[in-house]
Simulated assay, not measured.
Amino acid sequence: MTAEISRPLQRTVSPAPADSGHRFDAGRRWDASLSLAFASRSHGREGAARTRLVRARHHGPLRVQRPFYPEPHQVGRVDPCHVYLLHPPGGLVSGDALTVDIRVEPSAHAVLTTPAATKLYRADSHAVAWSQTNRFAVEDDGLLEWLPQETIGFDGSRGEQLTEIALQGSARCLGWEIMALGRPASQLPFESGRIEQRFRLSRDGRPLWLERQPLDPAHRRFVGRWGQGGATVQATLWAAGVEDAGGAVGALRAALPARPNWAVTQRHGVLLLRYLGSSRNEAWDLCCAAWHVLRPLLAGRGVCEPRIWRT
Rank of each mutant, 00 (worst) to 15 (best):
N281H: 14
Q213F: 12
S170E: 05
R183W: 15
L256D: 07
P260R: 10
N281K: 04
L298P: 05
C173L: 02
V223I: 12
R200N: 08
R221I: 13
D216R: 10
L188G: 09
L252P: 01
E160K: 01
L273W: 04
R259I: 08
P217N: 13
F222E: 05
L208K: 00
W262C: 04
S202Q: 03
I165T: 06
Q168I: 05
D216F: 11
A185P: 05
G230Q: 04
R198C: 07
S279L: 09
D285N: 08
R280S: 15
A283L: 06
G269T: 08
R183K: 15
W262V: 07
R295P: 12
T232V: 13
D285V: 00
S202M: 01
R200F: 11
E243R: 04
A251C: 06
P257V: 14
V293N: 00
R225V: 01
A166D: 08
I165Q: 01
A171L: 01
H268V: 04
G269D: 08
V249C: 14
R295T: 15
T236S: 12
R203K: 08
S170R: 01
Q168T: 09
L201V: 07
R206Q: 11
A258P: 09
R172Y: 15
A289H: 06
V223E: 08
L276K: 01
Q213H: 12
A283E: 10
